[in-house]
């Protein structure tokens, strides 16, 4: 991969950092050909991922490190996309236990991972051996003739060991 196609951000776990990362991700997505809506959704997914790290991984401590890597990639069919890796040194959680929740209930929490699952094409949580959590997620540029994404919104995605830190 060309180094010019990678952006690395290191932030403190303070909620003030969120708009900075959102802006960078949205800008990069648009540069890579994402539509306005897809770029917005990608930024939302990163925001939710970071919010979960802050709230749950670091229990609200505002001065802990979070590293975000955004890189350009292509699918097996050649579609361009962005891969986002969020890495923290917070509390480890078994990825298999991280679950979204039933949306039939009207209650405030537990929406973050549902959002991530819904708007991203690939989502995978892992526990690196040196501690903390890693979330890798990918979104591909929607094809102009792809009308399926809207209709499938809210249904389960392929694979991911998605989950909810919250």
């Amino acid at each position: 991969m060309n180094e010019a196609e990678i952006v690395k951000l290191s932030i403190a776990s303070h909620p003030k950092s969120l708009p900075v990362v959102r802006s960078a991700a949205e800008r990069m997505a648009k540069m890579e050909g994402f539509s306005e809506q897809d770029a917005n959704e990608l930024a939302l997914a990163i925001d939710e991922a970071l919010a979960n790290v802050i709230k749950h991984g670091y229990s609200g401590q505002p001065d802990k490190p979070i590293d975000i890597t955004l890189s350009v990639l292509r699918s097996s069919t050649g579609d361009p996309g962005l891969c986002i890796v969020v890495r923290d040194n917070g509390r480890q959680v078994d990825p298999d236990t991280i679950q979204g929740r039933d949306l039939d209930d009207l209650r405030p929490g537990g929406l973050g991972v549902h959002i991530i699952k819904t708007v991203m094409d690939e989502v995978e949580y892992s526990c690196p051996p040196d501690g903390g959590m890693q979330l890798r997620m990918v979104k591909y540029v929607s094809r102009a003739d792809d009308s399926s994404s809207e209709g499938e919104r809210g249904t389960s995605q392929t694979d991911p060991k998605d989950g909810d830190h919250g």
Partner: peptide, 16 residues
């Protein structure tokens, strides 16, 4: 211009 699940969750609690 922008709202995430924290904002939505806040409004859910107020609705309740």
């Amino acid at each position: 211009p922008y709202m995430d699940s924290s904002g939505v969750g806040t409004l859910v609690e107020i609705l309740r």
